[in-house]
Design a protein around this nucleic acid. Structure first.
Length: 427
RNA sequence: GGAGCUAUGGUGAAGAGGUUAUCACAGCGCUCUGUGGCAGCGCGGUCGAGGGUUCGAGUCCCUCUAGCUCCCCCA
């Protein structure tokens, strides 16, 4: 029979191999414990949702909706999408499960894979993992600040330092329209100087013109009126107070009037965590903001909320790149149980379990037959002792204990072996 | 959507048109059911896929696919 050709993972998707699991576990454990200390509760939602949920939340003119969404029809004809982010699902679950009657704010977090049909490159995958926080039902500035502070603490706790919070306010329904008009006026007679993409943005979403990276556009944008000047009193006060809270927390932040974010649902505060140096399009490890209108956009009553999402893949790859040491996963064995012959093999399983139950870090390789290969494995594992359990021993009810460093062997009674091992390993 | 680079056993590499594709490490097996850390021997690739040029291609050309990277954009 001809050899079958192997199958690759879908484009932009990859496996997380055993040797990398410790980094993932480290990042998730550290962040989860901090988040739970701040009384966020975990929520898990389906990885697919009705496509309309994302179109309504993220905005139909956003890149996510226009070209990055994985959508398909079910056999029943429903239009379904793989989730491109977590906030919409969380809010949907909040509304659907009547969480609006719980004491507010409702503080939720999620961890899981997200999907965007995008061109893969460094720090950017079609399936990637996010950890996100949402605080629903509290309009006060301290919420924004707490979220940002917590993000900073999380990066710190996994061992990543040197990140700045880039922050801006993009106003709300009452003051943003005036700003958008001003922006339109500003760009009107400069339209031939900006890139083609921006000409489209001019019609669809002027705000996005501000964070265009094209050389020509950046030049133009320098002259653009800053949104701060257009914030109304409540938005301005909100922003000011968020910054005051941040001053207290000592989180390093940078005011960035070009930061507008790609999702339509944001109001007022928006922010990104970026490294001090070598900023690229994929540098943001955490980003988020306030979204006071999303919940009513999704059919709830008007409820203020704020949140952020962290790209776990990016954090993990930074942790690896920086050589931060993380705890190993699994036991490092101190005893190897080698067995040979049918009789011994049969009894080995029970013996292994007895040793394990006694708290002895033991490994074995039951499938192997030759003592030679078993000892070789024992050696590679770096165990201190190997227990050799053969035909003869199984018959006599004994077992050989070999000290690996010296090669000294002695015979023990099978009934005594667990106690003896416990005693020896204590030293 | 646009651009560049890459693609040889599991991993890392050699092979710059010509006999059975080389090496290291790892894996597995055997020598060896009774002993490891430097043993010996063996197994496993048809060279990303498909076309083309040529007497002859891993080696040249084309297309596709994937990986990496950049633009766009995002976590």
């Amino acid at each position: 029979m001809a050899k079958q050709k192997t199958i690759q993972a879908p484009k932009g998707m990859h496996d997380i191999l055993p040797e990398d699991q410790k980094y993932w576990r480290h990042v998730m454990k550290k962040s989860q414990s901090l988040i739970e200390d701040y009384s966020f509760e975990r929520i898990d939602t389906p990885i697919v949702e009705p496509t309309e949920l994302f179109l309504r939340s993220v905005g139909s003119s956003s890149d996510i909706a226009e070209k990055e969404i994985y959508n398909f029809k079910t056999k029943g004809g429903d239009d379904i999408s793989l989730r491109p982010e977590g906030t919409a699902s969380t809010v949907r679950a909040y509304l659907e499960n009547g969480m609006n009657v719980r004491p507010h704010p409702v503080k939720l977090y999620y961890i899981g894979p997200m999907f965007r049909h995008d061109q893969p490159q460094q720090g950017r995958y079609r399936q990637f993992y996010q950890l996100g926080l949402e605080t629903i039902g509290d309009a006060s500035e301290v919420v924004d600040a707490e979220l940002i502070f917590l993000g900073y603490k999380i990066l710190d706790s996994v061992g990543l330092h040197g990140y700045n919070v880039h922050i801006n306010s993009i106003g709300d329904q009452s003051c943003r329209p005036a700003y958008l008009r001003a922006l339109k006026d500003f760009y009107k007679n400069k339209i031939k100087k900006v890139c083609p993409q921006c000409r489209i943005r001019f019609k669809k979403n002027v705000l996005r013109m501000l964070d265009c990276k094209e050389e020509g556009c950046r030049e133009v944008n320098k002259e653009a009126p800053p949104i701060i000047d257009f914030l109304d009193d409540t938005c301005k006060t909100h922003f000011k107070r968020v910054l005051e809270f941040l001053d207290e927390t000592k989180v390093p932040y940078i005011l960035d009037s070009s930061l507008v974010r790609g999702l339509d649902y944001y109001t007022r505060t928006v922010f990104e965590f970026l490294p001090e140096e070598n900023i690229t399009a994929q540098s943001a490890v955490i980003s988020g903001g306030r979204y006071d209108r999303l919940i009513d956009m999704l059919g709830g009553s008007k409820t203020p909320a704020a949140g952020w999402a962290m790209g776990i893949d990016r954090v993990v790859s930074e942790v690896k790149a920086k050589g931060i040491s993380v705890p190993e996963i699994g036991i490092k064995p101190r005893v190897f149980l080698a067995q040979l012959g049918e009789a011994a093999k049969k009894k080995s399983l029970a013996l292994f379990e007895n040793l394990r139950k006694a708290g002895i870090e033991v490994k074995s390789s039951f499938g192997r037959d030759s003592i030679k290969s078993q000892l070789r494995i024992a050696h590679r594992l770096g165990v201190k002792y190997t227990l050799i359990f053969g035909q003869k021993e199984a018959l006599e009810g004994t077992i050989i204990l070999r000290e690996m460093d010296t090669g000294i062997q002695e015979t023990l009674l099978l009934t005594k072996v667990v106690d003896e091992m416990k005693k020896r390993l204590k030293k």
